[in-house]
Amino acid sequence: MSILASIAHVLLALLLAPLLPGIINRVKAWFAGRHGQPLLQAYYDLWKLVHRGAVYSKTTTWVFVAGPIVELACAATALLIVPLGGIPGLLAFPGDFLLMAYLFGLMRFFTILAALDTGSSFEGMGASREAFFSALAEPALLVGLASLTVLSDSLSLGPMYSAVTWTAMASVGGPALLLVATAVLIVFLTENARIPVDDPNTHLELTMIHEVMVLDHGGPDFAMIQYGALLKLWVLGALLVGILVPVRSGFWPIDLAAGVAGMLVLAVLVGVIESLIARLRLVRVPQFLVAASVLSILALILVMRQP
């Protein structure tokens, strides 16, 4: 039964991931008093890109072509690992959260190399900042997840998230879980190139991080990058929703529906954050990320202090 639920989650994620940016953009448009782009814009974009040809710079090599392929493969593999609330991942084993985190590492590695492969200094600049911020975000995520392992006494994501129930929230783990959730939220915003760390809609190449790294990609390659990024948004979002929506009814359609609803609400939340906060100055971002690590460490200490 749980395998069926997991498969249902993976399929829903593959289908619904492009919906999230639509929701985010609509919320931002509502705040700004605009009408905004269609809810399904990301689907249209992907469809258009898949049917295009491609232009490659003479500077680039096979690394540039390999980049999008590896990125999408990494994000898809991570999707197989991640649980959504009480629904375990398809691929579960002790320590699976480490493989998931390092798959994103591999994804980043190839994004950065593909950017450097173009020889453009704009893309080099974006690559440098991506490497910088992600190195600081990594400890926050892993220490945060380590405190979940203590709470659940398990090293696999599925049981770790199954242990996040209303009772756990109300009794011992509440404060710790909230700290972890805040840390994961910061990592989620950083890793998915959202405000306050990065602005996907800025009009200057100089001020972008993730978008500038993929300037030279086009056609099906760019479609793979975009879809990979959407899946990554879903996976990291699922880590957050799993803590914030502790619905563990035991009946999987309810759990799955609650999880997916949580994802959509998360997209609204991101839209609200993006509308209310300005982007941080680059020199402030490290402090933001170190704060996330500190929150994770605090959560770990709190969890260890529980009897």
Binding site: A101, L116, A131, A135, E138, P139, L141, V143, A146, I297
Partner: peptide, 30 residues
Amino acid sequence: CVLVVGGLALIGGLAAACFTSAFGIAFLGE
């Protein structure tokens, strides 16, 4: 745990930055 998990995660991120730089700058581009 903080030393090992936080340390290894930070080392991993920094090593990725270091070696993307080494490979990307020396072997890629013009």
